[in-house]
Design a protein around this nucleic acid. Structure first.
Lengths: 202, 202
DNA sequence: TGTACATCAGTGAACGCGCGTTCACTGATGTAC
DNA sequence: TGTACATCAGTGAACGCGCGTTCACTGATGTAC
């Protein structure tokens, strides 16, 4: 049925980008076709280039949207409490949950895209939203560290976030094996255990 | 030049698998073609199916080889010392180096394949060598932890290795940015700093 | 050892397929009167 | 408000391309005598 209303066309565009934010996270930046995204949005492939200049342009736009959404989600979770340790748990526990592992389409875009980003050329338009999004997430996360020293604070954030990314990546790669749960639990226990203090003051 | 000697044919096969161990790690499990591997081995694509049943069969064989090689490399590094902390450093420092980040073709297959493995079907022949290889690396690594309690030992190994995987993955994904070095340094500092006892969370 | 011939490793053209992208077409939408 | 027509969002066939895989062919290798 050709020629829908301008309003419907705008809605369709949103639907396509939304489908893309899910599918790219589920199957990787090169794991879905234009036909796949359009079908997921309930459309046929021909109309795609009326909305986007290229498949990469959609990937870039979907990437920007998903980083924005996840940034907002993080800020909401952090805002539920004034206590840093509690806020950190409010981020980490869902992040390292079985639900997060089993639903990459709704979860962290850093984990979803990091592997592909390694093979992306330096000129790829996908690097910029990835870097910007990652930096924003790291900034949010850094505010929840418990050191007074900003340098140490930053290091803590980098270490803890790297652990979260590594654990979720490995848990997904080993999904279905006992090891997968073991990794999530070990990382979660380590990151959310009550701590005497940061190690430096002792 | 058709029909080389049987011995040369065996050598060619080895060359193909060796090229594959490098290329699959560099560009991902779905980032290279049969033409690419054969060209890297100095051959044309037509002869490929005289050596392997399919592209996936090569990927599986290359995966097995690279895990075996890296397992041997780890054991050699560990064997250079009797001190657990020293041995752990002998693994971690090269693992989280700029050289490792910049040369995925020579580095850890877990990091190279984990992202792709998430999208691999449960029946994929590539899961088995990945799981077996990962389990062997984790066992080697676990022997270097410094807890007496085996449960805690295992948790330490899972946490530290997840951190290594996450940090190297993120460092590769952000290659060229200051953040990339920052991540490697933070993770390395955290993992190799002198510790009072169990790895105090940072 | 020398010869005649069968074998078969590697070559490159060809296959079917799915991909990103283009385009002629359709018919409801939106607008000018 | 109603009508006539231009616009243009979506359709589906078609494009060129690269991919995994197949195959007829070549000529050096390996072997039977």
């Amino acid at each position: 049925m050709p020629r829908v209303s301008r309003k419907q066309a705008d809605l369709n565009r949103e639907t396509i980008v939304d489908a893309a934010t899910r599918l790219f996270r589920e199957r990787g930046l090169h794991g879905i076709s234009v036909v796949d995204v359009m079908a997921a949005a309930g459309l046929t492939h021909g109309g795609f280039y009326g909305h986007f200049e290229s498949k990469e342009a959609l990937a870039k736009e979907a990437s920007e949207r998903v980083f924005k959404e996840v940034g907002t989600r993080w800020r909401e979770r952090i805002a539920t409490t004034d206590d840093k340790a509690t806020a950190r748990r409010a981020l980490i526990e869902p992040y390292l949950s079985a639900h997060s592992r089993d639903n990459p389409g709704e979860s962290c875009p850093v984990v979803a895209f990091a592997g592909d980003m390694c093979h992306e050329s330096a000129e790829s338009g996908l690097r910029e939203p990835f870097m910007a999004g990652l930096n924003r997430l790291l900034d949010s996360f850094g505010k929840l560290m418990d050191s007074e020293d900003p340098t140490e604070n930053r290091q803590q954030a980098l270490v803890q976030y790297s652990l979260m990314v590594g654990a979720l990546t490995l848990a997904r790669a080993t999904r279905g094996e006992a090891l997968s749960d073991e990794i999530l639990e070990a990382a979660q226990h380590f990151l959310t255990a009550e701590k005497p203090e940061p190690p430096s003051p002792a």
